[in-house]
Design a protein around this nucleic acid. Structure first.
Length: 425
RNA sequence: GGUGGGGUGGCUGAGUGGUCGAAAGCGGCGGUCUUGAAAACCGUUGACUGUAACAGGUCCUAGGGUUCGAAUCCCUACCCCACCGCCA
């Protein structure tokens, strides 16, 4: 969330900056509620002050052995007034919080203007889209004819938007995950983490999925009300929730493989075929917890770490910076990496890397002690996929297919496949 | 699941109704000493809010209650620890 003080002292400025993401802040409402809050808070606090003073004097009188009965009678009305004022204050504070919690992050100045993903701006490309001298199949045709991918079976087990994989394809999927994690811990200095795949409300609030995006999540129905994680970003980032982190341990860099569960996937009727958009998919996630002055630079290296995976897999990709209209709720700046899919003749998102700045840290009260000021200050958090495993699998299958419907195995994955070099029927 | 014990500042931990935002230690910061560092010694040091600066307010896991007054008493929830039971 944004700094409440900043929002209430400069609502017009905030509204102006949020226009870039097509977010409309009701400035008049904020001003009106804020004026009320101020008045009621002053009233409540002065009543509190009075109550505290009276209570103290009663204590003194009692200690001195005086008769306190008249003092007790005098304090009755005060008590009732204070209780009423407090209720009123809580009510208005709740209204203000509701607004504050649903305001998205302010985009960086460098974020391009734009309405949709069509307005994202390409930063760079790597590799050349491969040309085939036959009609390339998509991953579903390839997987199905190998009898190693079965969407009908998944639909029987659960429903639409789930997948069953078998044999070498299942192993290739796992190989990708192992390869990615190993690369990040061995070459990029991340610490591997294993975390819960169900989290509580506080965690989802901390990273910004709640309260606004409840419908995107799978929620458990028992009395504990846990949620399935939509990304490992949630548990990883929340590790520092309510902590004052030792400055010497920064930056924290975590990498974690997890399944991700998203209810919204499929709500738009997009990518209904194959494994592109699923309710459950695997992802290797990178999260960095850093000092504010480092976050810009850490975002660049985060993207580079993700790109390295595609380079080692020799998959053509491009990197774009998301425009104001396409950027996520918590992010100040996001780079998407898009991999080439021959079946679609398009680049498709395979990683999303964001600098969240202090937006999540403020929600989570995640701080470090600044040596120079001696004061606790909010950390900056970043997250990025490194990479989405399901989409990486699709990209490998489609880019490495042969005319006979076999799939060559990228060199870097062969050690994870028992030395195998090709998957064929 | 059962029984018992707990949850207090960055950390450990004392505090059972008013003089407690809270002893002590550790850690941090400043200093003395030292070529420098360590040790030792001295001083200092909670967070949030609020103010031009004071003042004021809130915070002892969370939510309710009792009371003029709650870290302290009562209820509920969550979490942790120990032992027992069960179990991959």
């Amino acid at each position: 969330m944004l700094d409440a003080k900043y929002v209430r002292t400069n609502p017009e400025e905030v509204a102006e900056k949020l226009k870039k993401r097509n977010f409309n802040l009701d400035v008049e409402l904020v001003k009106k509620l804020e004026a009320e809050r101020r008045e009621i808070q002053v009233k409540t606090e002065s009543l509190q002050q009075e109550r505290n003073a009276r209570a103290k004097s009663i204590g003194k009188a009692k200690a001195a052995g005086e008769d306190i009965a008249p003092l007790l009678a005098a304090v009755d009305q005060l008590k009732a007034d204070h209780a009423a004022a407090e209720l009123e204050l809580n009510d208005i504070q709740a209204k203000l919080d509701e607004i504050l919690f649903s305001i998205p992050n302010i985009p960086d100045a460098e974020v391009p203007e734009g309405k949709s993903e069509d307005d994202n701006v390409e930063i760079r490309r790597w590799g050349e889209p491969k040309t085939f001298d036959f009609e390339p199949k998509d991953h579903l045709d390839l997987g199905t004819s190998l009898s190693q991918m079965d969407m009908e079976c998944a639909a029987k087990l659960t429903g639409s938007r789930f997948a069953v994989m078998k044999g070498d394809i299942a192993r290739l999927h796992r190989a990708l995950i192992q390869f990615m994690i190993n690369t990040h811990i061995e070459e990029h200095g991340y610490q591997e983490a294993y975390v819960p795949f169900m989290v509580n409300r506080d965690s989802l609030f901390g990273t910004g999925q709640l309260p606004k995006f409840e419908e995107d999540l799978f929620k458990l129905t028992d009395e504990r009300e846990f949620y399935m994680i939509p990304t490992a970003e949630v548990p990883l980032t929340n590790m520092v929730r309510d902590e004052i982190v030792d400055e010497a341990s920064l930056p924290l860099k975590f990498v974690c493989h997890s399944p991700c569960f998203r209810s919204e996937a499929g709500a738009y009727g997009r990518d209904t075929r194959g494994m592109i958009r699923q309710h459950q998919f695997e992802k290797v996630e990178m999260v960095k917890i850093v000092k504010p002055e480092d976050s810009e630079q850490e975002l660049e290296s985060l993207v580079a770490n993700a790109e390295t995976i595609l380079q080692k897999l020799e998959l053509p990709y491009r990197t774009v910076i998301l425009c104001g209209g396409d950027i996520g709720f918590s992010a100040a700046r996001t780079y998407d990496i898009e991999v080439w899919l021959p079946s679609q003749q398009k680049y498709r998102e395979i990683s999303s890397c964001s600098n969240v700045r202090d937006f999540q840290a403020r929600r989570m009260k995640a701080r470090y002690r600044n040596k120079e000021t001696g004061k606790p200050e909010f950390l900056h958090t970043l997250n990025g996929s490194g990479l989405a495993a399901g989409r990486a699998l699709i990209a490998v299958m489609e880019n490495y297919q042969t005319e006979t419907g076999a799939i060559e195995i990228p060199k870097v994955l062969q050690p994870y496949m028992g030395g195998k070099t090709i998957i064929e029927a």
